[in-house]
Design a protein around this nucleic acid. Structure first.
Lengths: 341, 341
DNA sequence: TTGTATGCGTTATCAA
DNA sequence: TTGATAACGCATACAA
């Protein structure tokens, strides 16, 4: 590329940003000295370092991440893939991840899979070359696809386990146990679980745990599903809930619970008298419904932060810190009560 | 950097991904031929091109975005900065932007400013070198800071105007007019506007338009604020709304309206009898409250998409398409009605 | 139609 | 402590 004198690329007619060459020329130093001064503080004469930093600031120098990524092989970018941005579950997750990234000097690249494994895989294809690692939240991929990705880049899973890959999974135990105890104490003897998508690992996990606890408390348990993890999905499931004879329903997530609540109102089923409803996650809006929603809260914000920290630690060659223990907890609101027979 | 034989960087002991050199060697071609075959389809012998594509697929070749960014000066990444990820307003915005990015072959880099101009500025400092352009949504920066950023990279604003920078602003006119007419028709003669943060351009715009329409309909108008654009902000403002004597309140956004609704319930103010409430945006949850919320809907999903398309068009040197006309509309629900005196 | 030679901005190795 | 230089992977002007 013989210098044609014209600036190519998208930068229009803006002034090109300063490089370490500009700084070096200004100070009659070598570019490598400048690079060192900026990256390895202390490994250079204090005086020179200061001069370099000063003119760097003066010239408004910003290191070019792309240029740096080439020799180092690290982009200092992390990917975050969620299944559905418009699902409020992910708000705090995204914020937590973004926050941790900022603190650690990483940049967050974002994508959603729109609840489709295929889209997710294609998206990752685009994303992976640009990032050092990726956080997969509620991935709709099968285990093999995930392993395959993990063979390419570091991966941290949220709310899912695959092999021995890093995973941040708030322990559902506490919350589920509290929920079942809560219902049992209210006098329920038959409960239903509205499962989420068949591909959702966390949905299965919640279902199994629920079954276990229900049996332990001598309750009847039915699982209904799979369902779309949306308001519509919850709404559509009421018929089957009623048919099952259960007096309380737990849903895979709050969105479904909200839909179920709505269906109840339309069908004239009183909540909690006619049916108690328990959601999962405690999303934005769970306390806006009438009645307000009892739900098992997940600390997704912390999970997002933890996932990023874990990822960065791995990238830096640290040992995996397996001491992550995030717990869930039951938030009791108005949608649960004693069954009225 | 004499080849030391060891792989540096974060990629651990993974196999390094294939490059155009690998493909070239495999086929006894020159790397430039490979590059061309992959980027300028047609400008190469069809046969050779096919061979190249085949072995590229075979080797699992992915072009390295960083390496490409260097000579071209384009990263094919776009930045998106919002003031608050956990504010549901942005959900659809983010999705729209992400979707458009995917279609256009761009990658979305994400950041939030946490409602602070300072944080936002620092974040952008980190972000800008990595992207070709940036979408600023509800920026908490002052005009000068934004102009300064625009001098560095292409910028598209959402819900704000600064000079003649590209901006996607759903026309508030229709929605505001509908809202005021709706209230006037119901018999209201005195309305209050709960403003958002002082730094919010769109809050001022809404307030001014509201004032204009209210006067046109012969109504009394008071603006109360600035307020925090949150549920708490809305909740805290009820006292002043009552003191103003207004029979209807419009809030800067739905979050505040939801807070106001809650304050009403706690204070025993019936809605809409004692006070009619109108929000802005129609966020997730606006139809979950009791009563459900009347609100001026903004097509933020479309705005996000439009912003990205506009940005990419600009980057590609296209003329700015000023034909963007996204309209707002009033969604009438239960929180508005005739005043009961 | 294909190959050769450079250069993008940075880091890292080695020599001074 | 500093400088010269090669290399990262790719795209392009130019020559063949």
């Amino acid at each position: 590329m013989v210098d044609t004198g014209l600036r190519h690329g998208a930068n229009g007619n803006r002034k090109p940003s300063a490089t370490i060459y500009d700084i070096a020329r200004e100070l009659a130093l070598s570019p490598s000295t400048v690079s060192r001064a900026l990256n390895k503080p202390g490994r250079i004469a204090a005086k020179t370092e200061k001069r370099i930093r000063d003119t760097a600031a003066e010239l408004g120098y910003r290191s070019n991440p792309m240029a740096r990524a080439l020799p180092t092989g690290r982009t200092r970018m992390l990917g975050l893939v969620v299944s559905d941005v418009t699902n409020p579950v992910f708000f705090r997750l995204v914020r937590g991840a973004e926050h941790a990234c900022g603190e650690l000097g990483y940049t967050l690249v974002f994508a959603e899979s729109q609840e489709s494994g295929e889209v997710e895989y294609g998206t990752l294809d685009r994303l992976l070359p640009a990032v050092d690692g990726v956080v997969l939240a509620a991935a709709r991929l099968d285990d093999e696809q995930i392993s395959q990705i993990a063979a390419t880049k570091d991966v941290v899973l949220v709310n899912r386990r695959v092999g021995d890959l890093s995973a941040i999974v708030p322990d559902p135990n506490v919350g589920v146990t509290q929920a079942v105890d809560h219902l049992a104490d209210l006098g329920h003897t038959s409960i239903a679980y509205l499962a989420g998508p068949a591909t959702s690992w966390i949905s299965r996990t919640r279902g199994e745990l629920l079954l276990e606890r229900a049996v332990a408390r001598g309750m009847t348990f039915v699982e209904i599903g799979p369902n779309s993890p949306t308001r519509d999905g919850g709404e559509a499931a009421l018929r089957r809930v009623r048919a099952s004879g259960a007096t309380a329903a737990l849903t895979y997530n709050d969105l479904m619970a909200i839909g179920l609540l709505r269906a109840c109102r339309e069908a004239g089923v009183s909540v909690p008298g006619g049916l108690s409803v328990v959601g999962f996650d405690d999303i934005f809006g769970a306390d806006l419904t009438t009645p307000t929603l009892t739900t098992v809260r997940s600390p997704l914000g912390l999970a997002g932060e933890a996932a990023v920290r874990d990822l960065v630690a791995t990238l830096d060659g640290a040992q995996r810190d397996t001491s992550e223990t995030l717990a869930t907890e039951l938030i009791v609101r108005e949608s649960t009560g004693a069954p009225v027979s």
